[in-house]
Design a protein around this nucleic acid. Structure first.
Lengths: 222, 222
DNA sequence: AACAATAATGAAATTACTTTCATTTTTAAT
DNA sequence: ATTAAAAATGAAAGTAATTTCATTATTGTT
């Protein structure tokens, strides 16, 4: 995981870094808010830990900046007990959670996990069998590796998954995937289904797309 | 807007249909839960109104079915006063809101608007100037119409918007958009920027992508 | 089993996208 | 103003995706 720590206290920063790096994470440290903004603008992190009190630009301001840039990256605020009263307040500031100093690694780890899990369940993914479809980045993954799909193959797979368990006629597929009013006289759909099937089968060993003679195609429900 | 109404009471269904159709909406009516599932599986609506009490399959079951299929389409439950106690309960069932019968069109309209607005702010869109970037469907819209971008142009625009206001060097663009470790000796980036600029300018009349001599490119912040 | 309709296939043709090349224009510094 | 580096441009080359074609295989029906 890519972790950004914005913390001006070198001792705390270093002990956090060590802790996370031991688990195989890639950690970057920003010594102040300015640096945190500069780095977070350019690198996508899995989670960002922001010290509230930092010279010049505070963690809150960094948080606001990140959110204004459209990023939904998980952010946890590190605060002294007096600075924040409850989670609602942290949420209003755009953070996902907060941890009061002094804190234990156990507590911080637990909160980080929760925030990341919540974030991931909010990302636009479809999961089907062992296949994970990332709708934003258009990546399709299985435990055996990444499947490279073309644009049309991806759109078709997405359509099948959203309609898994029901037979989709070629008319519907044409309308919804190709934006065509009429089914072409050629075998456009069949050819695309063939290529999609091949790639899925190479990775899963299964033929998940059934042909229903005279009716259409069906992605078998789990 | 595409509206699906699932309501077994023909009178209510028809008066709703009439009401929405007058505002230029496209309305479909499902006479029972089974039909609602069949239709909602195949057509993407902007909002779905579900009567709770319907023969065989209830609105709740339709709602659960829709959510299990991964759809986040806005759903409002139409219920008799006794069936549901509060919004939390409706939310737990997967609905976005509920309206108790008998209801006024004013109330229903207001709740529909709120739910749709909430939904839209949750969709993965970037908004920049008058440009709306739909990250899921990879569509780019302006008030003057749709902009057709190629994959690379889209990825580059998305990257610029996420980093608007800061200068992005060619090294960074290469790394993050092209996944290249080194800047190619050719003018790959310049050529792509050129094409993206052209398309944006045709639609907005502005050149939003500035060149910073010797440093990189900058999408000017709003 | 024979038939006609439907679906699958491999490869070719077409189209669109991506990258490169050669040249011109712009920029910042002298 | 001159210059050298950087950036922009138009068009060509290269690559990949999409669609079509011709053929073979499969399916349901008689």
């Amino acid at each position: 995981m890519n972790i950004l720590i914005a913390e001006d206290d070198e001792h705390i920063a270093e002990s956090l870094r060590k802790n996370f790096a031991e688990d195989g994470n890639h950690v970057m440290i920003a010594k102040d808010g300015k640096e945190a903004i500069r780095i977070s603008d350019k690198i996508l992190f899995d989670i960002i830990l922001l010290d509230w009190r930092m010279p010049e630009i505070t963690g809150i301001e960094v948080c606001r900046h990140i959110r204004e840039n459209g990023s939904k990256v998980p952010i946890i605020l590190l605060t002294a007990l007096s600075q924040i009263k409850n989670k609602i307040e942290a949420l209003n500031l755009g953070a996902d959670d907060y941890v009061t100093k002094p804190f234990s690694f156990e507590e911080l780890n637990a909160r980080m996990k929760a925030v990341i899990r919540r974030y991931q369940s909010n990302t636009d993914e479809l999961v089907f069998y062992e296949i994970t479809v990332d709708l934003i980045n258009r990546k399709v993954c299985t435990p055996h590796g990444k499947i490279n799909l073309t644009v049309k193959e991806f759109d078709l797979l997405k359509y099948f998954i959203l309609h898994k368990g029901s037979i989709m006629s070629k008319e519907e597929i044409c309308r919804d995937v190709w934006n065509l009013e009429f089914v072409p006289t050629t075998n456009l759909i069949e050819a695309t289904v063939k290529n999609l099937r091949k790639k899925l089968e190479e990775n899963t060993g299964k033929n998940l797309i059934k042909s229903i003679y005279g009716e259409g195609y069906l992605l078998i429900a789990e």
